[in-house]
Write a protein that binds this DNA or RNA. Structure first.
Lengths: 203, 203
DNA sequence: CTGAAAGTTTGCAGATCCTGAAATTTCTTC
DNA sequence: GAAGAAATTTCAGGATCTGCAAACTTTCAG
């Protein structure tokens, strides 16, 4: 990636990003229309007017084009978490970080709703959706371990708190996809329940 | 499935179960030896001396043979949960149910450790591992919804508590795979932390 | 402007995955 | 045993995905 002083990309990299985005868009819309099995990689490549070999230069599989996973986002989550002031409890820090992420997702509402719709209609994709979090988990758990220091009483805590936090986020997203409202509110609500120890809701 | 009065299976069904188990075993050991990419479906079928088409009669994909997922287990989890006495809080009921499940897993320690080793060495399988829980989630969430009744304050609670509980179980399993000890203890510990609202561990 | 370096796209060959359909074998039941 | 049900096999074929080398585009230095 070549970046000039003002943060602009060169033509080459702009084209790359555009191709990638176009492939994602095409994959999402086509699969939304015809279902996962009704769309071949060739169809997607065709729609963007590149060879199917090129598709595989960008995504390792058809499913991956639908995920919208972005290594840059992961890295940013890690950095945000690491940047939280020392006194803040881990769960609280995660809540803040993921609320910011929720705002971002909300910013691409259209695309995410389409994506979630595709996931609903093609349950075989759910694994990948969950795994998207899973990849991030290791890295985030390492940040938490760093943060709380290394002592026996904390064994397993980093993995657990990260896994639970991402789970809360995911559940909030699925809720958000089937009802109107602010994703951030749903995320916040989920964290509140987790922080309270998930007591039975009182009618 | 034909079951005679004493709960025994006929020859046909015994063979089916045996074939299925043999395919799982072969898949696990071969992949543990050579890695996921180093083993073809044909290799697995060959090792069990069936045609590769038969493999696909049992498992929809190579990965699925490694999962050890069992619809019967899911059903049992749902029933156990539904059978918990009315007064018990949901999280507590889940703890009990999953502790029992932990004992069961511990009973197949060898196979599960091999399986988890395979997962570690082939991260592309992690999605499926997570998804195994995901399939169960819907059903379990429905049981929880039934249990707590339907009121606005509880929106999203069933999905959240189930997702978190299964996450806790999964984290405990991963910990268990890399250290000796009782899985049940690790599960219990994880639930205790969740019930306490995941406070920072005190050094 | 020009040519070389670097990076991207493409076509192609080929292994593997997975599915449908029909033929064959194995098991159950009468 | 013979009929029928169920499982397995064989076969054909479409789709996924990878490696490789050729062709093309962009970048950049001179």
């Amino acid at each position: 990636m070549i970046v000039d002083s003002s943060g602009e990309l060169g033509r080459r990299d702009r084209k790359k990003l555009e191709t990638r985005a176009a492939l994602e868009r095409a994959a999402l819309t086509l699969v939304a229309e015809r279902g996962l099995a009704g769309v071949t990689v060739e169809d997607i490549a065709e729609a963007v007017d590149v060879s199917s070999r090129t598709f595989f230069n960008y995504f390792p599989s058809k499913e991956d084009a639908l995920l919208g996973s972005d290594p840059a986002v992961e890295a940013e989550l890690r950095e945000s978490l690491a940047a939280a002031p020392p006194g803040v409890p881990v769960l609280q820090a995660l809540r803040t970080v993921l609320l910011a992420e929720a705002e971002r997702v909300q910013g691409h509402r259209e695309q995410w709703l389409l994506r979630l719709k595709v996931f609903e209609q093609n349950p075989s994709l759910l694994p990948r959706l969950l795994a998207m979090g899973a990849e991030a988990e290791r890295g985030l758990a390492a940040v938490v371990a760093e943060r709380i220091g290394d002592h026996p009483a904390a064994a397993g805590y980093p993995e657990l708190v990260i896994a639970v936090a991402l789970t809360a986020f995911r559940v909030a997203m699925l809720r958000w996809s089937s009802a109107d409202g602010e994703l951030a509110d749903l995320v916040d609500e989920a964290f509140a329940q987790v922080a309270a120890g998930l007591p039975d809701p009182t009618p």
